[in-house]
Design a protein around this nucleic acid. Structure first.
Length: 878
RNA sequence: GGGCGGAUAGCUCAGUGGGAGAGCAUCGGCCUUACAAGCCGGGGGUCAGAGGUUCGAAUCCUCUUCCGCCCA
């Protein structure tokens, strides 16, 4: 039997076992048709990314599930991969180019893409290496990337089919435009934030006759593109104006006053300007009224020739010029401070511009309907389920998805336009000639697809679709998706839609939505705040096991995680505790020979620990199945530390001294230790493997050993009850020791009184154990007869005394007794009030009444014993 | 403005109709040969406030206050 070093060197151990697991191919599925399947696809991190604490949580949870199921006999597959993150990655490489004084346009499309691929090959692997440090048991032989050949084929297949089904269309619509990233964004890629702004009131004179309309706007520069003024149809103030014309200040265009119910009469003056090319609501209003769209701002955020004298100006400069001119010409009525909700690009944070533009869209309604039903009818379960409402609400209000992006890095849209016949054709294979007229003068669409378009296919594209692969047949649908709520709509909803549409089946049965990791003050972690906790640094400082266990222990459902480094440090102590407990076991296993466990002959404390283990195993499994990782982690923590270490190991020291008892105790120590490691393995893969390998064991690796079952260990309620009693006695004795400041190593005599014969017999039988754990020189058990001059503690079914002639402080004893008396009386009076209430006796369930009565008896007896002790000490005092 | 969630020990949180709990922190005593990253023991709470339902409310209902998130 090998001896363990005194302290745990996680650095070396983590590296060693990860390499071992990977080389042995344990992460790959066994493809054994008799085994049930468990599959997970990783939420692909951005290829530009590095592991942040959110990834650490996300992947720890997945790994806990995958390792648990793998040990529990499932054929498991966890597919890893990365996402090409179009805008983000392009931004990174463009920044790099900028340092060389170049833009992507200097290189041209092809050279630029080569440059991005180069970058990806060099740096794109970083997050994969970091996931390995965390211990993630992904099947790396199936590593995927959204721009892989196979996945790209899936993207094309999906695009072509959706086009053929009429679910993809192209057209001029208003979209969100990021002038910095120079691309369209989907609605949900825009973050709306309240920003201090102003409300300008502008006079629009009537064309005929006297009078004017005053409109309020937060964006005066867009007035150059106004094609109407709108009022609410029932607004009495403006009833006469509807149908008349006003003249647009500064450029003099005549525009109509229209009535539309979308106008909020409470906003500003109740009259609003309508700019169809630069505002979502106005765009829709223009559709309803057939208004023209005048585009006064271009894709760079500069004013177009339509803006007349302002052409060429930047959007912010144009605003101040327009305001100044309005004021100078007397059109500005007033200005108020006003908080506006401004859209910001989720990639670069600059202010997004609503813009009229030709883009590609996916019709969402026909796809959303079955995706909603899948959750509604329980084919897909969201955990925790309070996300259901949000999901339904979003699906209900879903709008068409703008999928084209004006960047280069991504899947180029497979559409070709013929310069001769003008037709657009969409095709699976690249086109050389126009299928309509045979012309060779065709040009491929410049735009690429939204990255989320390819992510939406992830659960089946990674398994080989559109090929009919073995993996697809075996592992689709996947078992569970682990993700955070912030991409529920970006990603999860779209995977459900695409999965249902193209596979005819849900992509996963359960979606576990975990919390966001925040700092200890509850703030979002961000580089600018400087409050980020870097998981890689934490792994280096405290070990991957400590980090993983901390995240699991804090992962309560429906609550954000407030993480601080000290929590991780705290759980490192737990790792150390495990190490030392197993070290103790090993030190005492030097002469160990395995044998059958004679259950009937086991000492009480051994039967107790096996029973507690059985209960803990059941609890851990149950909480894992419920995705309550915190509860599962805490159950193990409590069992291992406070039951196995604090009580069993201490008790075992007694039995290890014997002959026969030693052998049985070795067996129990080993079984409990070994099973605890297996139970812990999904949470702490590294230290458990290291220790399991050091213990006598069967098999090559703990990660392939069976997950513990509650039935492996006998339940023994009687042993649990007896142990509870003994523990109560021992704690009482330790209590007296602490109160009297008796040195922990000093052995003291004790007397225990109990009227119950069963308890007296138990105490006699277990006297050696009680003496060891309470450090007693002798233990006397009596039915009656209190010793003189003794410190005492009154329990409900026993009294504990430490006779200490000369040492007992009567005043202290009395104060303890009076305090206890007060507490007991308070409790008793509460119980009695209840029992004296006829309503309670009549209406409460019989077992509750019975329980209360028993409790009253117990308290009365205890009170009486306290009273007797008080009398005794009072007598001694005088 | 609409929706969702939260308020329980100093901190982080569990408890969802019948004796207020855990971890960490704190205080006191200990180097008791697995572990001082440890052991033993203690203190600490009108369960945000008000009202209601009930024999009984931290728990269910209503309102109020405060905090967070999502949407408009």
């Amino acid at each position: 039997m090998k001896e363990l070093p005194k302290s745990y060197d996680f650095q070396e151990v983590e590296e060693k076992w990860y390499r071992f697991w990977e080389e042995k191919g344990y992460f790959r599925p066994r493809l054994d048709p008799r085994r049930p399947k468990f599959s997970v696809v990783i939420p692909p991190p951005n290829v530009t990314g590095s592991l942040h604490i959110g990834h650490a949580l996300n992947n720890t949870i997945q790994d806990i599930l995958v390792r648990y199921k793998r040990m529990d006999g499932y054929d498991t597959l966890w597919v890893p991969g990365t996402d090409h993150a179009g805008i983000a990655t392009q931004n990174v490489v463009e920044r790099e180019l900028a340092k060389e004084g170049k833009t992507r346009h200097d290189l041209g499309r092809e050279a630029f893409l080569e440059r991005v691929w180069e970058w990806k090959e060099r740096f794109g692997n970083r997050i994969i290496q970091q996931l390995k440090r965390l211990g993630a048991s992904c099947d790396w032989s199936r590593l995927r990337f959204t721009m892989d050949e196979g996945l790209s084929r899936a993207v094309r297949e999906v695009f072509v089919r959706l086009w053929e089904e009429g679910l993809i269309y192209r057209g001029d619509y208003i979209i969100n435009w990021c002038p910095r990233c120079h691309t369209a964004l989907a609605d949900i890629e825009v973050e709306h934030r309240p920003t201090p702004g102003k409300l300008w009131y502008i006079r629009y004179p009537l064309v005929e006759g006297q009078g004017e309309v005053v409109v309020a706007t937060t964006r005066p520069e867009t007035m150059l593109g106004d094609t109407a003024v709108a009022v609410h149809p029932e607004d009495e103030r403006y009833r006469d104006l509807i149908g008349r014309k006003v003249r647009l200040p500064l450029i003099g265009r005549e525009i109509p006053v229209i009535a539309d119910p979308a106008v909020d009469p409470e906003f500003g003056t109740g009259a609003v300007k309508v700019t169809p090319a630069h505002d979502f609501a106005d765009f829709e209003m223009a559709e309803r009224h057939g208004l023209p769209r005048v585009k006064i701002m271009d894709e760079d955020g500069k004013m177009t020739p339509e803006a007349g004298p302002y052409a060429g100006l930047d959007r912010f400069e144009a605003r101040s010029r327009v305001v100044a001119d309005l004021e100078a010409q007397g059109f500005l009525v007033k200005t108020e401070d006003y908080e506006v909700m401004l859209g910001h690009c989720y990639r670069c944070d600059c202010v997004v511009e609503p813009l009229l533009s030709k883009q590609w869209f996916v019709r969402m309604k026909p796809l959303a309907q079955p995706a909603t039903a899948a959750v509604e009818y329980g084919f897909i379960r969201l955990v925790p389920e309070n996300w259901n409402n949000l999901y339904f609400d979003w699906m209900h209000r879903i709008r068409d998805w703008c999928i084209s992006r004006q960047i280069w890095w991504g899947h180029r849209i497979p559409a070709w336009t013929c310069e001769d016949c003008g037709k657009t054709s969409v095709a699976r294979e690249d086109l050389e000639v126009c299928p309509e007229c045979g012309s060779k003068r065709i040009r491929q669409e410049e735009d690429v697809l939204d990255t989320w378009f390819s992510s939406a296919l992830w659960p089946f594209s990674t398994l080989g679709w559109p090929e009919k692969t073995e993996d697809l047949r075996t592992f689709y649908p996947t078992s569970v998706l682990v993700t955070s709520f912030d991409i529920l709509f970006f990603w999860v909803a779209r995977m459900i839609m695409m999965g249902l549409h193209f596979m005819g089946n849900i992509p996963f049965r359960t979606v576990y939505i975990h919390a966001l990791v925040r700092d200890e003050k509850g703030q979002k972690m961000s580089k600018s705040r400087g409050n980020v906790i870097d998981p890689v640094v934490m792994i280096e400082k405290y070990g991957a096991d400590a980090l993983r266990f901390t995240l699991a222990a804090l992962a309560a459902q429906g609550r954000d995680i407030k993480l601080s480094e000290s929590r991780i440090e705290g759980y490192k102590h737990f790792v150390n505790k495990i190490w030392n407990a197993i070290r103790f076991v090993l030190l005492n296993l030097q002469d160990f020979r395995p044998r059958e466990l004679p259950l009937e002959e086991l000492p009480l404390v051994s039967r107790w620990i096996l029973s507690r283990l059985s209960y803990t195993v059941e609890r851990v499994r149950d909480r894992l199945e419920a995705y309550e990782f915190d509860q599962a982690a805490l159950a193990i923590y409590h069992f291992f530390w406070h039951e196995f270490c604090d009580w069993y190991i201490e008790a075992a020291k007694l039995y290890l001294r014997g002959e026969e008892a030693r052998k049985a105790t070795q067996e129990v120590l080993l079984r409990v230790a070994e099973a605890s490691l297996r139970l812990l393995h999904p949470f702490m893969p590294f230290v458990t493997e290291e220790l399991w390998q050091a213990l006598p064991h069967e098999g090559e690796s703990i990660m392939l050993a069976p997950y513990p079952r509650a039935e492996e260990f006998p339940r023994d309620p009687e042993a649990e009850e007896k142990m509870s009693f003994l523990m109560e006695i021992i704690v009482a004795l330790r209590n007296i020791r602490a109160d009297y400041n008796l040195h922990p190593t000093r052995e003291i005599p004790a007397v225990v009184l109990s009227e119950k014969k069963a308890w007296r017999d138990l105490l006699e039988a277990e006297a050696p154990l009680v003496k060891l754990l309470a450090r007693l020189s002798e233990l006397e058990v009596r039915e009656a007869g209190r010793p003189e001059a003794a410190a005492s503690v009154v329990l409900s079914e026993a009294e504990v005394f430490v006779p200490l002639s000369g040492l007992v402080d009567i005043a202290q004893e009395l104060s303890r007794l009076y305090k206890e008396k007060e507490k007991t009386e308070r409790e008793l009076s509460r119980v009695e009030t209840r029992l004296n209430n006829p309503q309670f006796l009549a209406k409460a369930p019989a077992e509750v009444v019975e329980k209360e009565k028993a409790r009253a008896r117990e308290l009365q007896e205890k009170l009486q014993r306290i009273q007797e002790n008080i009398h005794r000490f009072e007598a001694l005092k005088s």
